Simulated scan of single mutants.
Amino acid sequence: MVDHTKALAAGAERRLQDLGITLPPPPTPFGAYVEAVTIGNLVFLSGMLPVVGHEPQFIGRVGGELTVADGRKAAEVAILSALSAARAHLGSLDKVTRVAKLGVYIATEGDFREHPKVADGASEMLVNVFGEEKLSGRIVLGVASLPLGLPIELELVLEVDA
Rank of each mutant, 00 (worst) to 15 (best):
E114L: 13
T108D: 10
E124T: 03
K134S: 03
S136G: 05
F130I: 03
L154M: 00
M125Q: 08
H89C: 01
E109M: 11
A88I: 06
G110S: 14
G137V: 03
E133R: 00
V127C: 08
G110D: 13
P151R: 06
Y105W: 13
L135Q: 05
V118D: 06
A144T: 15
R138C: 04
E132V: 13
K117L: 15
I139D: 05
E133M: 01
L148K: 12
V99M: 05
P147C: 02
L126P: 00
K95T: 09
G110Y: 12
K134Q: 13
A119H: 06
E153F: 07
R87C: 06
D111R: 15
L154Q: 04
G103P: 06
A119F: 05
A85M: 00
D94Y: 09
E155L: 11
E153V: 14
A144V: 12
A86T: 11
E153D: 02
V118I: 06
I152H: 01
G137H: 06
V104N: 10
K134R: 15
E155N: 07
V140M: 10
R98P: 00
L146R: 08
E133H: 02
P151W: 00
V143R: 10
L148N: 13
L80F: 00
I139G: 14
F112V: 09
N128K: 15
V99G: 07
L83S: 07
T97Y: 04
L154T: 08
L93V: 11
L93I: 11
G131F: 06
V104F: 06
A100P: 00
S136A: 04
S123Y: 15
K95A: 14
R98E: 02
R87P: 05
G131N: 00
E124V: 08
T108G: 08
G131R: 03
E114N: 15
I139A: 11
M125T: 15
A88V: 09
G91P: 12
G131P: 03
P116V: 12
D120L: 10
L126R: 01
T97A: 08
L141C: 04
L150Y: 08
L126Y: 01
V99H: 08
L102P: 01
A100T: 09
L102M: 11
A86Q: 07
E153M: 15
N128C: 09
K101R: 14
R138E: 04
L135Y: 09
F112A: 11
S123C: 04
P151G: 01
G110Q: 14
V118E: 03
R98S: 03
G103V: 06
G121A: 02
G91H: 14
V96I: 05
K95G: 04
E132A: 15
F130Y: 14
E153A: 15
L90S: 12
L154K: 08
A82I: 07
E155I: 07
G142S: 12
L90N: 04
G131C: 07
Y105N: 13
F130Q: 06
H89W: 02
L150V: 00
P151V: 00
R87D: 09
P147I: 07
R138W: 15
F112K: 05
L80S: 09
A119Q: 04
V127F: 12
E124W: 07
F130N: 01
F130W: 04
A144F: 10
T97V: 09
A100I: 09
I152A: 05
V129K: 09
F130M: 00
K101Q: 14
E132G: 11
H89T: 01
R113P: 11
